[in-house]
Design a protein around this nucleic acid. Sequence first.
DNA 1: CTTAGCCCTGTAATCGTTACCACGTGACCG
DNA 2: CGGTCACGTGGTAACGATTACAGGGCTAAG
Lengths: 327, 327
Amino acid sequence: MTTIKDVAQHAGVSTATVSRVLNGHAAPTEETRTRVLAAVEELGYRPNALARSLRTTSTTTLGLVISDLVNPFFAEIARAVEEEARAHGFCVIVANADESAEQQATYVRNLLDRRVDGLLVCPATDDPTWIAEVEDKHIPLVLLDRTVAGATCPVVRADGAQALADLAAALTAAGHRRVGVIAGPADTSTGRERLEQFARGGLELEVVHGDFRRDSGVRAAAALLDLPDRPTALVAMDNLMGLGALEELRRRNLKVPADVGLAVYDDQPWFPLLDPPITVVAQPTVEMGRAAARSLLALIAGEQPDDVRLTARLVVRGSCGEATGAA
Amino acid sequence: MTTIKDVAQHAGVSTATVSRVLNGHAAPTEETRTRVLAAVEELGYRPNALARSLRTTSTTTLGLVISDLVNPFFAEIARAVEEEARAHGFCVIVANADESAEQQATYVRNLLDRRVDGLLVCPATDDPTWIAEVEDKHIPLVLLDRTVAGATCPVVRADGAQALADLAAALTAAGHRRVGVIAGPADTSTGRERLEQFARGGLELEVVHGDFRRDSGVRAAAALLDLPDRPTALVAMDNLMGLGALEELRRRNLKVPADVGLAVYDDQPWFPLLDPPITVVAQPTVEMGRAAARSLLALIAGEQPDDVRLTARLVVRGSCGEATGAA
DNA sequence: CTTAGCCCTGTAATCGTTACCACGTGACCG
DNA sequence: CGGTCACGTGGTAACGATTACAGGGCTAAG
């Protein structure tokens, strides 16, 4: 592997000069500049990012800890974060916590060890212990999608209050009174919040908690559909649990919305293709990712960005049934 | 930030001893061991991964360059790679090339700069120039999903020949003669191969090339459906283009399979939920990711793993129509 | 003609670790 | 009882880059 020393030797200058040329510092002569660049070219030299970062204590790298990479919601966020970061010359290391608090903590530590310049985390649970570790080291931190009690860092998330109120109203208008909710885990802020906000809609709720994954959606739907007094509609608080619910409905040969109405929090491209298309609360996923990256970069630059709340909105498509004037 | 020096001082030993304790080398006394560990604990010391890697020339990190993170096929692969790597104590840096050869090259270089121990790439195009760079530096490399002409490194991919033959047969049995193919880019191995293998099925084909993304699926489907002598079925060679095709069919109010049959290469969890459920060629996604990670780790360990070909299989679901005994 | 000042360059220290070598001590054996 | 051996430990030189500081050459001014 060729080092800066090789380049220096090849160009007949010192390593300091090579470094200066490569970093555009203290302008060297045009002549030495071209000579150095020629040597770099010829040897195919690439600076060792490890050595450089060790010296400069900067990696121009952001760490992103995602709750679940296979969840398209998070995949899209990851992509948005990455794009925004790249536009600012930063690179992103994506780590997948798989909705596990332990794995999340492991990754946070790992990213800190690698000296990322900042950390973007979608917290798996409410457990706040890992945050202290990050703040001790004075590494800029931004929370994404979910918050954690007692966190003092900026938070970027969607505000679904209005959309969920609208959803409750739409369900009511369609004649639903008793609704089964497939909620997120009670130890996540989004899990609690969405449920709370939806509960304000005045419907009678049956609640089963899932874990934001497909299988839990299947189980929760089954539990709700097995109730003696079956709810007339289901609301899944996450796209993967929505998928699970759909699978269970299909398995039981229940027609949507004739037998059971359905709505899902978080839109997916295939929801409009179902028959009937699924009514959803759509989140501004890409904007969330971008905003989070921007906040983190601001924090790194020494600014004090505010929390960001982007509004989610209801998209009525038909899976909850038609509004009946009679109701 | 506390360094190994602080720990050494705190424990009253030399930095060398601290290092030995932490790395389990040349057994120190039980007594010094506990003393050092106590100091580590007390100071909350974590070794600087940059410095360590600089010294040892090993990062226990794999680089994974993905064609498109938002494509669920690749997202699932990424997850599998990451799991397998973690099981072996390796960490994965995921980079998203967004189907762009340039961005891919940029990321490959970036990962090499960071001195990853090995590289896993899903090549965006056939352009092989970047491979030379990797091989020059003797960094272990494994190609995933797609291959590149002249590559001498191990390749892990799916073999869809039989499945595509089966699909052609199934389409024929269902009475189709002229089929519109939404193919992948001609400058990707999977794009060419799938088309070639399907073409052997003896059907009359109309081919439009897409780019493995949703929009291109929409456009390609539109082009095919606008043909004067419209094909009786469409085959999309990738799940995202399949999604696009479905959207276009929906927009035109064409019924599947009554008006047009449809099949897609690469299964997705929501395909069975459509009406009718979509016939697909299912790839062993997770196994591909795992196998690729294993191959790369073997390469890093100095072994010479063989190429891996995992067989894809046809899953008939109904979107191509029923086999007619009459045909 | 001398000297101040500027610009370019090189020398060397440094970032935090680990590898190598040398040293001291205690044990064991002849 | 002395010599060897083994083992635990400390000092120190790397790893590959950046950067403060110093020095040398040249121009311009007095």
